[in-house]
Simulated scan of single mutants.
Amino acid sequence: MSLSFLIKLQILWAINDIQKIYFPILAAFGVPVNVVTIVILSRGKCGLSKCVTRYLVAMAAADLLVVIIDLILRQIPIIYREQFSFLRVIRMCNIHAVLLYAATDCSVWFTVTFTFDRFVAICCQKLKTKYCTEKTAAVVLGTVTVLSGLKNILWYFLYTNEYWLSNSPWFCRVSRGVAHSLVWTIIELMHYILTPFIPFLLIVLFNVLTVRHILVASRARRRLRSPNSGECPSDPEMENRRNSIILLFVISGNFILLWVVFTACSILRRLDYLGYPVPLPTFVREIGFMLQLLSCCTNTFIYAVTQRKFREELRNGVKYPLAMMVKLIR
């Protein structure tokens, strides 16, 4: 047994020990922060348009489902498999897989649709009035939800209904014939291409086009507003765009950063099954799981950091129950 293998094994054991603390804390934290985010945004007092609010509420709802279905009902039972061994007799893993992958797809693609909405709002003024509406947002989000459900029905037939309780992209038992079949290979590759490889590309593309448009528009507005002097008076329009862009970029960057390890590991794993092995320590995949799930709990902090009115609503929400407790005590 080589020294490098022993080091990798020790790192894996250390990460598994960390996960036994990390996953429960993340679950205890992820459920309330997403619920609070949904409540605050739904009140409509954060200074955001109804269209943007719809997207952000949908993203928080999808993240909440991922926390429940993936983190609480999958990752925690796997890391504590001795205590959850009874799950092996519960025959519904393939249903669990469909719900999990559909919720994950919604979480990812809602981020893409939000990015595209902001791209249209900033770069396509003629289309903005027709597309960036509350009704369009509802139609887009509903369509993504339905398509995500339909896309993942195939997993019901590919997986068995038995839990495997193994920390891998496949957490249900799969027959060897299916796992090594061409049909499985095509479906799994398409699965990871559609979520999140294509979303990565689309988010980067829309953000690059948005930045390019803003830079050109900013220079043009500065020339128009101060043609004869170096002074540039305050521009409320550009200030609003700047705030919108900060929110967009932080959400997009957070998504890409926290999903990239998981995506790379999943694709390399499939290449290994196809006979093109790429050496990758198992602990890297475990880190990918941890980062991917963290992405479902960070948007509340993003809103709190970038949106002043969201911070005020959050502060008021914390103060209200405390004030009620003080009144009851008195």
Rank of each mutant, 00 (worst) to 15 (best):
43 R>V: 03
249 F>Y: 05
244 S>N: 12
23 F>T: 02
316 N>W: 05
102 A>T: 14
146 V>Q: 12
252 S>T: 06
139 V>C: 04
283 F>Y: 15
122 I>D: 02
166 S>M: 13
327 K>A: 05
230 G>I: 12
179 A>D: 04
41 L>Q: 08
172 C>G: 10
144 V>F: 06
215 L>E: 09
322 L>G: 03
60 A>K: 00
229 S>A: 08
167 N>L: 15
204 V>S: 07
271 L>M: 08
309 K>Q: 15
168 S>T: 14
115 T>E: 01
148 S>T: 08
55 Y>S: 04
172 C>I: 11
170 W>Q: 12
260 V>S: 09
305 V>P: 04
138 A>P: 04
123 C>L: 00
107 S>F: 14
302 I>Y: 05
207 N>I: 04
311 R>T: 06
207 N>L: 02
254 N>I: 00
188 E>A: 03
271 L>I: 02
62 A>R: 04
151 K>Q: 10
244 S>K: 09
106 C>F: 09
154 L>N: 04
1 M>F: 11
136 T>D: 04
138 A>W: 07
159 Y>T: 01
178 V>H: 09
302 I>Q: 01
58 A>H: 05
311 R>S: 04
41 L>P: 01
132 C>R: 03
10 Q>D: 09
36 V>N: 00
75 Q>A: 09
175 S>M: 10
217 A>N: 13
126 K>G: 01
117 D>M: 15
241 R>S: 04
4 S>F: 13
6 L>N: 12
78 I>Q: 14
270 R>K: 08
